[in-house]
Write a protein that binds this DNA or RNA. Structure first.
Lengths: 210, 210, 210, 210
DNA sequence: CATGAATGAGGGTTCATTCAT
DNA sequence: GATGAATGAACCCTCATTCAT
């Protein structure tokens, strides 16, 4: 693996374990076995590393989402569930990021802009998915205000389920993630036309988190 | 005002504005106009300040909640809405705390225990409220698993609406808080028996946030 | 007991346990249950406390020595043994002082002078005792140079036996103190005329150290 | 000279002059002309410096002792005298260490263990030397208890002669060191078989202390 | 690409001491 | 005699960052 990638991956791991403030650039360099100077050859500063991680996050998320879109009908229940699972896996993989999001964004306007752009794209996708669902009859019709709140509710659950678990002192595992899916379904189900959501099997999640 | 209270209040303000890591104990002391030594006369260390803030938070939340319970029927829609508004105000007042929650809890086991205890109490209250609602007929009957997910959904929205706004780059104001109420209603409404929730007027929120 | 004496006694105890640098004036005040201001009403500063302890030490040592002189013939073996035991008890009671002696003296010229004066008095007493012993025939005759070395040897053992134990990682107790007496006898015996020193019974030491 | 060595040497010098507590890490750094950060690049903390000094002490003492063993017959009077002179030189070179020994050991369990190990080795060597002396007839026969006291007496004088001088307010110089040798001889001589110890010329000491 | 010694500002914290009450 | 809040210098140590090699 290239040094640059080693830095990014090691940084992600250490940030997840200890938080960005507790992990110094020298810690990262030591963990990889390179010199502090070398780290600064590849990145201008610590923020630069975090921004690079964000770029990776972005690409990773998009890629995974494309896979889902290729497999499942947009607006279908399956697509929604798979997306939720994917987002949880994503949130777990980069969990330091969401945990410290506000602080990170406060200190780095560039990152702030990048993040908001991505976040808005995701919300747009959700709204588009809802529109698809309404169009194909799987979701009940609703006006724009209702649609906005519905999208917010879904995105809120997807975004913060992991934080909700952490904050509640619960481990992140197959079972607690399935519970997240149940919560999402609690929000979704009343707005679906008829088809009853199958119980999540959790298998998709299972092999992802280890 | 006593020095101890000045320290707590100034710390809250600076933590909210810049985050706990960016605010040094000397910053706090300077902001108040006292010596660094004096700050350490009143608190053993930085964590001690944060714990003292948490104690204040706890008391503040309980007090506000009592006021609501004295005014509104537990399990009623009004009580829920008022509680939601109250929680948002609370979250805003101590917004650094929720933003950095995981990191704070990671570094201070004492705080971790305190927080989990409070958090579980809140969840218990929500479940109790749901039971009241079911008992008095305002909420549809549901089994225990459904009830668990329903409570999680409600608590998730209440806990993280502010973070959702911050993360989305939206200001916290009367309008965005009302939207939070709308999202909560999106989740609640389908599980209510008949009575349609009135649109939130937002007046209660209005004078609270300035 | 008067506050001033409480301060001195508590300071001795804490200094013995933790060393003078680790024990702050506030620690002393807290340990007694008085305010820091009150401590500074009784003593001008920390050094002043240490000097007061030294004065107490001096009086204590003199007093104990007088008791021995009243009971035993100066220059007799019994007087020497009793004196040795007394000095060990004294060194133990104020053990922080000998441990940190050089450092304390370095930082306080006043204390330095006081200590040297006392120390010289003790050496004079030893030389006088030797003279007595030679005069009454219990100690072999020797020239002045030999007498000087002999006095140094005796005083060295008496002064540093406790430090020798501490440095060697040995506890200070009845047994190790008796060993100190044996070492002293190893130095003394060859210079005595005929009378064989009785084995130390240790009883005198026993009830002193608890 | 390498920075690491500069730190060690400067630390020894300053510690000797002012004591370990009075000398801050910043003092050391300033004295060398390096930044505080650089000092902490080479040593984890202040204790680490002291431990490094101890390691140097150990090596230095062993090396010097080997030289003596190669030149003089073990158990011979010459070897003892040379060793005594060497130990005084050693104690002077690292005089802060013996002065503060108990305090240093109290605060650093690692150092404690290291020191005790070295100290026991030295005592073992002395006992071995006595055995050699008895075996080759230069030291009178004695039982084990006597041997133990004899070894303690010798080691006590060797260890604390310098402290005895400091505590007595005497300078450390050629003359006072020779007096130390005289004291040692006062203890030794009665236990030697016949050969009379020559007066120490002190020449070996002379060129060592400047 | 990479090293690693070096920088220096700043962080949390302690403590001898003061002083108004 | 006594209180206790307050001071401020100093301490140990960290860390993002630089730069000669």
């Amino acid at each position: 693996m290239k040094t640059r990638d080693k830095i990014i991956n090691t940084a992600i791991q250490l940030f997840n374990e200890q938080g960005t403030k507790a992990v110094s650039t020298n810690h990262i360099a030591t963990a990889i076995g390179i010199s502090p100077g070398n780290l600064y050859y590849h990145f201008r500063n610590k923020e630069d590393i975090i921004r690079a991680i964000f770029v990776q996050m972005d690409e990773y998320g998009l890629e995974k989402y494309q896979i889902i879109l290729n497999k499942y009908q947009p607006g279908s229940i399956e697509a929604m569930e798979q997306t939720f699972i994917m987002i949880q896996e994503y949130n777990w993989r980069y969990r330091f990021f969401k945990r410290e999001l506000t602080a990170l964004i406060m200190n780095d306007p560039l990152l702030k802009e990048c993040f908001h752009s991505t976040n808005n794209q995701m919300l747009d996708m959700i709204r588009y998915t809802i529109d698809c669902g309404i169009a194909n009859g799987s979701i009940k019709a609703m006006n724009d205000i209702e649609k906005g709140s519905f999208a917010d509710a879904i995105w809120l659950v997807a975004l913060f389920w992991l934080n909700y678990l952490e904050v509640g002192g619960e481990e992140v595992n197959e079972y607690t993630l399935r519970r997240g899916n149940d919560v999402l379904r609690t929000v979704l189900q009343p707005y679906l036309t008829g088809e009853i959501l199958k119980n999540s099997t959790g298998t998709a999640v299972l092999h992802v988190f280890n």
